[in-house]
Amino acid sequence: MVAISVQNINKKYGDIQALNNISFEVRQGEIYGIIGPDGAGKTSLFRILTTLLLAESGTAKVDGLDIVKDYKQIRNRIGYMPGKFSLYQDLTVEENLEFFATVFNTTIKENYDLIKDIYSQIEPFKDRRAGKLSGGMKQKLALSCALIHKPTVLFLDEPTTGVDPVSRKEFWEMLRNLKEQNITILVSTPYMDEAMLCDRIALIQEGTFLQVDTPDNIIERFTEILWAVKSAEMFRLLNDLRQYDPIKTCFTFGEVHHITVKEDLKMEKLENYLKEKGHVDIEIYPMKPNIEDCYMQLAQKVAI
């Protein structure tokens, strides 16, 4: 069963095309990721699908309901966690949760089973004002408020941005538990590593989907020869690699540079070139691509 269906959605802000002919479907009970950097169009898409913004053209259905004609019904069936913490900072944890339950004509007690694994972690701080919580605690409270009315579809717009790595891991464990309860989850993130935690993903750049598939299938389609390179002077190394003709692309990934190379380039030849440039402590070795490598390859093709 299809939980979200989007056909040819377009959105402009003045001369800027925020969304360009976006189409996709999300199956019921699926974790579907929209993966891309800031400014790619993720938030505009989420605001349209949650009935907070109108598209210039195109249609979409959420839980079988039209986002324009049936917007009131949709708002009762979905949970939405925007990228910016938007709960009431002066209300306590418990007061925020009670408020959102009241808005949807329910109670904390009625749907406590759905949120207990999440809310139990912040319940010891239920009398603390929301504005005084840590990033991870705010995240758990926002998710609890988005779930308190037992939605069928959950929209999470960059939910882990600015949150520490431990809280990010905990958050994704919560999402997997929610999936087991047959809740459909559409999540956006700029973190490429989180893409591997989704059932399917759409890579987005400048309002256009570059590719849609499972993370593993996208990685399998990577066609380039990929090496990792490092030396004692990484910044100078980056410039020298980008100026070397047999290298197609070069990007920094943590402590190494990832490069794609022409088929006839040998590692020994590249090492000799770098030695001639005065580099020392040179390391070159083949790499298996990750989602970020795939994204950069697809983005480069679009740019060309």
Rank of each mutant, 00 (worst) to 15 (best):
T43N: 05
Q211R: 10
N21Q: 15
M196Y: 05
Q17N: 13
V229P: 10
R176W: 05
T51D: 07
T102N: 13
Y13P: 06
V166A: 13
L175G: 05
F104E: 03
R236Q: 13
T160Y: 04
D245W: 02
I219M: 06
V256L: 11
D90E: 15
M137T: 03
Q139V: 06
W227S: 12
G39C: 09
L52F: 14
K275L: 14
I148E: 09
L226D: 12
G33Q: 06
G14H: 11
I304V: 12
C250V: 15
G29Y: 08
I259P: 01
Y273M: 11
F24M: 10
M234Q: 15
T260Y: 00
D63Y: 14
K277I: 06
Y191A: 09
P37N: 09
P124G: 11
I225N: 13
G136R: 06
K230M: 14
M267D: 10
N21K: 13
F125E: 01
T92I: 04
G39I: 11
V103K: 11
A40Q: 04
T152E: 13
Y273R: 10
T260M: 00
L156M: 08
E220Y: 11
S57H: 08
H257Y: 08
L53T: 02
K84P: 00
T106W: 03
M296E: 04
N177L: 15
F99V: 05
L178R: 08
A228K: 14
E268S: 14
R128T: 04
F235C: 00
D15Y: 10
D127H: 13
I204D: 00
E180C: 03
K269N: 12
T208N: 02
N20L: 01
D193C: 10
Q121H: 11
L156I: 07
Q73M: 11
V6D: 04
D193S: 14
D293A: 02
L143K: 06
L91Y: 13
Q121I: 04
M192E: 09
Y244T: 03
D281K: 15
I108P: 03
E123S: 14
E263N: 13
L186W: 01
K288I: 12
K275C: 09
V280P: 00
Q243W: 00
S5A: 12
E95A: 12
T214N: 09
A55G: 03
E292A: 12
I201S: 07
K138I: 04
L238V: 07
F251T: 05
K140G: 04
T50S: 15
M287H: 09
T106H: 02
I16D: 01
V93D: 02
S44W: 05
D38Q: 12
A228E: 15
R200K: 14
I284G: 02
E268W: 00
L298C: 06
S188G: 06
T43P: 02
K11H: 12
I218P: 05
Y13K: 08
R200H: 11
Q243R: 15
N96C: 11
S134D: 03
I118E: 00
Y273E: 12
I22L: 09
A303T: 06
T184F: 08
S44Q: 09
L143F: 11
L91P: 01
H258K: 13
L141W: 05
P215N: 09
E56L: 04
G254M: 07
Q181Y: 06
Y285I: 08
I34P: 01
